[in-house]
Amino acid sequence: MNQPLLEVTDLNKNFGGIIATSRLYLSVEQGQVHAVIGPNGAGKTTLISQLSGQLKPTSGRIEFEGRNITGYSTARRARAGLARSFQITSVIMPMTLLENVMLAVQGSEGHSFRFWASVKRDGEMIDAAMKSLVEVGLDDRADRIAAQVSHGERRQLEVAMALAMGPKLLLLDEPMAGMGSEETARMVEILSRLKGDKTILLIEHDMDAVFSLADSLSVLVNGHIIATDTVEKIRNNSDVQQAYLGEEHA
């Protein structure tokens, strides 16, 4: 049996008296798209923030490629190969899309204590960044300022930045958040092209998207994972239907 890429053991997070994550176990296999679903306030973003290092867990253990990374800073986890996209779009607004992605490439290329050579003339870095923009279909907008493109395009930029880091694991926090149906369809198409090639932990609200993308699925309720299984089995699990999917899927 292969070791999973990401292994979370007994993760707990309390904010004062509020339990945001409770006895959470999760593992993501190499090459899989694993989705985490759950109702609002179930602790999905809290979970991803603990995985990417923005939040320190109260207790528990996070292993990545067999290494305990629980004590690593956000930046160190990113350099180890964990790339995160944000639910609330987080890009460098006054920079162009290309400059944003170039920063992602640069971050994955060792230290940046280089004071002289202009990045504008760094052909290799520009090529690498353009490749990621092509993957999300933004190459024709490379020179637009991030603040001036549409919300959906900024969501695509988020994914391009995560891809440009050359990550071993992509943590995508609701990539379809706030998108119209056309934009959602485009994002599903982008992500399905990555499937098989990249290992992805996908947090998503849009059920149709999850069912078409994920290989396996965990259901998060009140900070605790109540079921983990293949997409088919979760669909037919009555506990899950009661807890989350509701009448229409029953």
């Binding site: 930046a75 350099r79 790339a83 006054p94 920079m95 971050g107 994955s108 940046s112």
Partner: peptide, 18 residues
């Protein structure tokens, strides 16, 4: 570039590995 990026969005820069 790291300095300018950090001015606008330090959290994002950290999650990019800086």
């Amino acid at each position: 570039r790291v300095i300018v990026g950090s001015r606008f969005n330090e959290d994002r820069m950290q999650s990019l590995g800086y």
